[in-house]
């Protein structure tokens, strides 16, 4: 990476990040820079640490950061509580969204929105304004309004849960959204709707990190950069063509012990920077 890129304004700068779960090291020197407005895809085999990375960025306490640094808009992200990170504009769409029986989706979303708005010193929204806002966002992700009165993710189908994540993202208006396997468990129609919802939110300075196992999602959400995570490190980076290459070749080359090979895709990134 060139000096220029390092000095340019970054929304996220991850430097030599080491993190562990229950004393098992998972992330082993992860580096990643994301500029405002960019869409990065992180791909990699199961167990490579993709969700661990997403959870570390969101501030999950089960994941201990052992060394390295994460700057978010120039501030030390690791110093912030999960709620502060969210209020500062970080959003994680969970791979496995949590259900909360007894709290309606509407109550949950409004509490979250108002918490974020209070933090941003904006006035809270009342029930009427909230409903108007949430309805327009539900249309965006093709979600049934009935799900508003249901308990959060309780008894939701896989697709409904994923849409609900995107709905929350749309309502909370983050600056950096991490989508952790948002495509898993979705059929092709649902995938398209969710991707369209995400694309509608693209633009301006909003950045995305799209974590996925399969290239399929990236046909719809076209990334600016693609990274391959293996054993807690980014072992290859490239442009969107890298995703296609991985689709063809799979991840088996990672196990062969071969040095990651340079391809056309890698080259383009090098030149672009």
């Amino acid at each position: 990476m060139s000096e220029n890129e390092k000095e340019g304004s970054m929304i996220l700068e991850v430097n030599d990040l080491h993190a562990s779960v229950e004393d098992t090291p998972i992330l082993r020197g992860l580096n990643l820079n994301v500029k405002p407005g960019e869409v990065h895809a992180i791909m990699g085999p199961n167990g490579s640490g993709k969700s661990t990375f997403a959870n570390v960025i969101a501030g999950h306490e089960d994941y201990a950061v052992d060394s390295g640094s994460v700057l978010y808009n120039g501030i030390d992200l690791l110093d912030l509580s999960p709620e502060e990170r969210a209020c500062e504009g970080i959003f994680l769409a969970f791979q496995y969204p949590v259900s909360i029986p007894g709290i309606s989706n509407a109550y949950f979303l409004r509490s979250a929105l108002n918490a974020v708005r209070r933090y941003r010193e904006e006035s809270e929204v009342d029930a009427v304004d909230f409903l108007q806002l949430v309805r327009s966002k539900m249309a965006l992700v093709g979600m049934d309004e009935k799900l508003l009165q249901r308990s959060v993710n309780d008894g939701f189908s896989g697709g409904e849960k994923k849409r609900n994540e995107i709905l929350q993202m749309a309502v909370l208006d983050p600056k950096l959204a991490i989508l952790d396997e948002t495509d898993s468990g979705l059929d092709i129609d649902a995938l398209r709707i969710v991707a369209e919802g995400v694309n509608a939110l693209r633009g301006g300075d909003r950045s995305f990190i799209v974590v996925t196992h399969y290239q399929r999602l990236l046909d719809y959400i076209v990334p600016d950069h693609v990274h391959v995570l293996s054993q807690g490190q980014i072992v290859r980076s490239g442009d969107k063509t890298l995703a296609h290459e991985l689709e063809r070749e799979g991840y088996s080359w990672l196990d062969s012990g071969d040095k990651p090979k340079k391809s056309e895709a890698d080259q383009k990134v090098q030149e672009a920077s």
């Binding site: 969101a58 501030g59 999950h60 306490e61 509580s81 999960p82 709620e83 990170r85 969210a86 209020c87 959003f91 994680l92 969970f94 969204p97 949590v98 909360i100 029986p101 007894g102 709290i103 109550y107 949950f108 509490s111 979250a112 929105l113 918490a115 974020v116 933090y119 308990s151 929350q168 909370l172």
Partner: peptide, 26 residues
């Protein structure tokens, strides 16, 4: 898990705990 989910949406830890009272007694 539910507490982290709430916090990851911007709800403070204390408010998230209070929301769990609401959930539990619903």
């Amino acid at each position: 898990g539910a507490l982290f989910y709430l916090r990851s949406r911007g709800v403070s830890l204390e408010e998230a705990r209070r929301m769990m009272v609401r959930a539990f007694t619903a």
